[in-house]
Design a protein around this nucleic acid. Structure first.
Length: 557
RNA sequence: AGGGGCGUCGACAAGUGGCUUAAGUCACCAGGUUUUGAUCCUGGCAUUCGUAGGUUCGAAUCCUACCGCCCCUGCCA
């Protein structure tokens, strides 16, 4: 059991730390937490954090709590709480508890008074601008606030009145009394509480002061007995402060903060600001637009949770700022979909083919495996062949290039699983477009196996004109056309890929797809992986292309 | 400028003084199988670990200096 786990789990420094702590007996069991701020949708970057936080807890038999970091009522909404829960569950993880930092507001407040009584916090009445000036610079130490030496009594009185709502926003702020000359800016008397007369999504109007992230996070971890508080690199400089609170307060446990690099991909933007801009300025159709790197977008696109979890394991955990090649994501998606998506045929741009020697009004049925690669075929589906079929327009070339293995005048190809046909005639319209092919079929080669054993190189997909079901297919491609959207002086919006969405209204697909439920993931053979969109209905199929199959032929040409 | 991090193949990433004349994955290249030009299989792909010195019988791993990149001056998280 543990051996197979070791094989799949690549070593990383966080795993090492946890394993050491467990081995040494520092902790009998580990506790982690995933602490999203409920102010937006989760994206693929969060998926990595989820895999690390929940995944490591699961792997080592510990627990992970889901804690909404709701210390800023002006930015947070309940709507996001639900979508975050849905996304985590979709990825397959279970939280041991759901908590909110706001659950701890009373305790946090009590600790703040403790700090004041210990002479380690004070109410500053400077303006934000004055505080900024007093903070100094990277090179120069800050200066103490003129309010820094207020008495404990005065501080307590002021702080309580802040809490009671007696002051305007910005009038006062509670600060830790640490060191205005610290080379670490975070230690120059950081703010603990600010006055905010805002309605909180959970505590309503009960509070007029709210704790800052720095003041709330570590203590919340301590309350939950978190052993390993895993976060991203930008919090590294906050760790001394995190520890200062833990050391100066009577907290129930001593969590350890460990930072690791966030996940970035080529051809993507991940910042909340940019994602919001894409949605609000209508560059995409919403937060769950299949081109978005949000988990809801990827879900709608057809990415499977297993693919995303596998990807995170492949990417690993380190402290290096890095940007992962999207091809790694694409590989993870194809790898999982290849194993789990039943095969079907669908013609994106239909070209009519008439089998002239095929009996009129006749339907020939064939059985085709759902998973041709598997030994047992993974089950079968039935597909009808009729006199008129559609093939992919791209699969015909009047003047074939060298090494062409598809339809062309005089050439014989296989209609996958069904027949061998030879192109006899090309019919064009007034402007010279090919509108129809007249072919013959070999009645002796049912299923596509020639009686004489002759080699037929090309196999193409097709759909019966009579039985095929019309569908709208939405082909998605990467949202940006450059590896680093917005790098340097450029505006990322100028680098949107104009072809990120292509809508095909006239596709025809196998009849057994007519009743497919939204969310159904399939492969259209020779094309790619697809997923039935939520917009789909039995009389108006809408299918999203998740990702194409690899195509070494297209690459060559 | 001060502080905190990080630099191993095109992209991720193992490795923490000898079993490494540096794992694995993606990408890429070359073959094979194939009723998906898919999958699958095989082979190739860093004499070198940011650079320069040093310690050592022996260094990607230790020391020194230098170079580069990222983060930090919100009453955001």
């Amino acid at each position: 059991m543990s051996e197979s786990k070791d094989e799949s789990a690549a070593p990383n420094f966080v795993r090492d730390i946890i394993a050491d702590d467990l081995r040494s007996g520092k902790h009998p069991q580990i506790v982690t937490r995933f602490p999203p701020e409920p102010n937006g949708y989760l994206h693929i970057g969060h998926a990595k954090a989820i895999c690390v936080d929940f995944g490591l807890a699961k792997e080592f038999g510990g627990r992970c709590t889901l804690r909404f970091d709701d210390t800023n009522p002006v930015k947070e909404e309940t709507e996001f709480v639900e979508s975050i829960k849905e996304d985590i569950a979709w990825l397959g993880f279970e939280w041991s508890d759901i908590r909110f930092t706001s659950d701890y507001f009373d305790q946090l407040y009590a600790w703040a008074e403790d700090l004041i009584r210990a002479g380690k916090a004070y109410v500053d009445s400077q303006s934000a601008e004055q505080m900024k000036e007093g903070r100094g610079d990277f090179g120069t130490p800050g200066t103490n606030s003129p309010y820094r030496d207020r008495s404990v009594e005065e501080n307590l009185d002021l702080f309580r009145r802040m809490k009671a709502g007696e002051f305007a926003e910005g009038a006062h702020v509670l600060r830790a009394k640490i060191d205005m000359a610290s080379p670490n800016m975070n230690m120059r008397d950081p703010a603990l509480y600010r006055i905010l007369h805002a309605h909180h999504h959970r505590t309503g109007d009960a509070w007029h002061i709210y704790p800052t992230y720095d003041y709330a996070h570590g203590q919340s971890d301590a309350i939950e007995h978190v052993t390993h508080s895993l976060c991203t690199l930008e919090f590294e400089a906050h760790r001394p402060l995190y520890e200062w609170f833990i050391d100066n307060l009577d907290v129930p446990s001593k969590p350890r903060q460990i930072e690791f690099a966030r996940l970035n991909f080529t051809y993507m933007v991940m910042s909340k600001r940019k994602l919001r801009q894409l949605v609000e300025e209508d560059h995409v159709l919403g937060w769950d637009d299949p081109r978005m790197p949000t988990l809801s977008g990827m879900r709608r696109r057809g990415f499977s949770p297993a693919a995303i979890v596998n990807l995170c394991e492949r990417v690993g955990v380190s402290k290096r700022n890095s940007q992962v090649d999207v091809s790694l994501l694409e590989h993870a998606v194809r790898d999982d979909l290849n194993q789990h998506s039943p095969r079907h045929m669908g013609v994106m741009r239909p070209l009519e083919v008439v089998l002239e020697n095929f009996p009129d009004d006749h339907t020939e049925w064939f059985e085709a495996p759902q998973f041709p690669g598997r030994e047992d075929g993974g089950g079968t589906r039935r597909i009808p062949l009729t006199k008129v079929v559609y093939v992919e327009h791209d699969d015909f070339m009047e003047e074939p290039v060298k090494k062409w293995r598809r339809l062309a005048p005089g050439v014989e190809v296989r209609l996958r699983y069904a027949a061998l046909v030879t192109c006899k005639e090309v019919v064009k319209n007034d402007v010279g477009d090919v509108v129809r092919l007249v072919c013959t079929w070999d009645p002796e080669a049912k299923g596509g196996n020639p009686a004489d054993g002759r080699k037929v190189k090309g196999t193409i997909h097709w759909v019966s004109a009579e039985h095929g079901v019309p569908a709208t297919v939405r082909n998605y491609d990467r949202l940006f056309s450059v590896e680093n959207p917005g790098a340097g002086e450029t505006n990322f919006l100028d680098q949107l890929n104009p072809d990120s969405l292509e809508v095909l209204e006239g596709a025809r697909v196998e009849p057994d797809l007519a009743q497919a439920e939204p969310g159904t993931r399939i492969q259209f053979e020779r094309l790619g992986y697809y997923c039935v969109d939520p917009d789909s209905s039995p009389d108006a199929l809408v299918i999203n292309r998740t990702i194409t199959l690899r195509d070494s032929w297209a690459k060559k040409s």
